[in-house]
Amino acid sequence: MSEFTPKPAATRPPRQARTGVTSTGARKAGSKSDRSRAREFALQALYQRLVGKNGITDIDVFTRDLAGFSKCDSVHFDALLHGCTDEANVLDALILPLLDRKMEEISPIEHAVMWIGAYEFKHCLDVPWRVVLNECIELAKEFGGTDGHKYVNAVLNGLAPSLRAAEVNADRGNPRS
């Protein structure tokens, strides 16, 4: 090129949409509801509880300071964080019979996701059971191990009929309750 030949304009790659799904199949941030975000923050907080054994008050304060917390449903976050930690033994007792290994062998992410699912099945009756299941699978896909979402799916799918029998039976076309 001579010094008078115009240089080609620098081209930037096209902007990626903020909505849709990532390469792992998880939803992108722009397409998440306030409650989905609350579940994400609750998962992070419960992870701190399971792994770091941190105090719930410290975890709560720390989590509320994280970027993006203002976009979540803080009431649902409170219910999940405090409900799951207050009922940890009850939730574990519901989950344990459905596991094919010891609880200590379950990843802390999957453990926390299953707590969220079991808690919502039990206490958040305004959220359809399939929504709870799907949201938990999405959390496990985004934050868990490679096939962790499959394990979470199997356990919570097994738990749903005992906590939401009428709803699950109606949804599956089974008239018995």
Rank of each mutant, 00 (worst) to 15 (best):
H111V: 02
I116R: 06
D65N: 11
K150Q: 08
I116Y: 06
D58A: 15
S177Y: 08
V90L: 15
R130G: 03
E135D: 15
L96R: 07
Y151L: 12
R15D: 14
R164F: 10
G117I: 03
I59V: 12
A38H: 04
E104M: 08
I137C: 03
D126F: 08
T11Y: 07
T5I: 12
S33W: 10
G20D: 01
F143A: 09
L139N: 00
E110K: 06
G144N: 05
R49A: 02
S2D: 15
H82P: 06
F121A: 02
F41C: 01
S2H: 15
W129Q: 05
L50K: 07
R39G: 01
A160G: 06
A118L: 10
M114P: 04
C136Y: 01
V127I: 14
S33Y: 08
E135A: 08
D65Y: 07
F41V: 00
P161C: 04
A67L: 13
D92S: 11
D171L: 01
H111I: 08
V155D: 06
S162E: 13
P97H: 03
A166V: 05
K150L: 08
K71A: 11
A10Y: 05
K150A: 05
V127C: 10
F143G: 02
R164A: 11
A79K: 11
F69V: 08
A93Y: 04
I95E: 05
N157A: 15
S23C: 14
R37C: 01
G83N: 02
A165R: 12
Y47G: 04
T63W: 09
V155Y: 02
L99M: 02
N134H: 04
M1I: 12
T146L: 13
D86C: 07
S23Y: 14
H111N: 06
P6I: 14
A140C: 09
K32Q: 15
